[in-house]
């Protein structure tokens, strides 16, 4: 089963192309991370899934239903944490949840839900006085009402401290275990990397990559780099390393070889150098950081 299916979706605002021919399929039961810098089109995509905005072209199906004509039925089975929302300042947290319960015809335990997002103590205060993080958690609770099949969370960790963000990821995992599909957008890679089965990276309205984190790392040009200090960096040794399978790039500076390669060949790189008659004095290894990976796709500075 397919939870979300976008086919050739384009959205233009006047001359501005917010989304350009987007194709994306998300399977039932997976946690999908939707990544990209601010303004890449993540929220536009989500707004189209929820029929908040209408695509200029393309077809959109959510839970097997037409996003445009069957939106109410889709939203009856979906929990939504939208981007750029505001709570009702004059209503209490509990009244917000009450409204979500009535709207969805849900019957679960409201206090347990408030507890789950750590808002039980503040439930009877007006939401206008909540902090940004509390508003975020209140909205997350509203999204969880009625045990939805699909959760659409647009930047759910914005405004949360690291602990709050970790709790959100924990909830996302629990929801997936319950059987829900989770579509989770973020401009911060590490928020997504920790929980997602697959990620899609959006850049200027175009999907530039869809893969698992490991797959992306590999596709981005080798997961690791190895730095080897030798007594003399002979051409023979460098050529031997360059010709190895799994080695992408070798650069030499003075007596240090920097080798970009796949994870599994590091040891063989060392032995190859030694076999060429060169003494290895020291070596260090580092994984390509995910931030570098993200930057390599988006061509932009990663925002913290």
């Amino acid at each position: 089963m397919t939870a979300i299916d976008l086919d050739g979706v384009t959205k233009r605002y006047g001359d501005v192309v917010a989304l350009d021919d987007l194709d994306l399929t998300i399977d039932d039961g997976e946690i999908f991370g939707f990544l990209g810098p601010n303004g890449a089109g993540k929220s536009t995509t989500i707004n189209i899934l929820l029929d908040f905005v209408r695509p200029t072209a393309g077809s959109v199906e959510v839970l097997g239903m037409n996003a445009r004509t069957q939106s109410q039925a889709i939203r009856a089975r979906t929990g939504v944490l939208p981007e750029g929302f505001q709570v009702y300042e004059r209503l209490t947290g509990r009244q917000h949840l009450q409204f979500a319960f009535e709207s969805k015809g849900a019957t679960q335990d409201m206090d347990a839900l408030l507890e789950r997002v750590d808002l039980l103590d503040a439930a009877d205060r007006k939401a206008g006085g909540y902090s940004k993080g509390m508003k975020q958690r209140l909205t997350l609770a509203m999204a969880l009402v009625g045990e939805p099949e699909l959760l659409i969370l647009d930047e759910p960790t914005t405004g949360l401290d690291p602990r709050g963000a970790r709790e959100v990821r924990e909830i996302v995992r629990q929801e997936r275990e319950r059987g829900a599909t989770v579509f989770f957008s973020s401009h911060i890679l590490e928020q997504v990397q920790a929980v997602c089965d697959r990620v899609g990276i959006l850049r200027e309205g175009e999907l530039v990559a869809v893969d698992t984190i490991d797959g992306l790392r590999e596709a981005a040009g080798g997961g690791s780099s190895l730095s080897v200090t030798v007594d003399v960096a002979t051409d023979e040794a460098v050529d031997a390393v360059r010709s190895m399978d799994g080695v992408h790039e070798v650069t030499v500076q003075d007596s240090t070889l920097s080798v970009r390669c796949e994870e599994g060949v590091k040891t063989r790189v060392i032995t190859t150098i030694e076999d060429a008659g060169v003494t290895v004095e020291d070596f260090s290894t580092e994984e390509t950081s995910l931030e570098e990976l993200f930057m390599s796709y988006t061509g932009e500075e990663v925002q913290a």
Binding site: Q72, A76, V80, L81, P82, F85, Q86, Y88, F99, K104
Partner: peptide
């Protein structure tokens, strides 16, 4: 203007 419409329409209302 405030964006609370997204909270409202995130719930199943036409």
């Amino acid at each position: 203007e405030s964006g609370s419409i997204k909270l409202l329409l995130g719930l199943p209302h036409t």
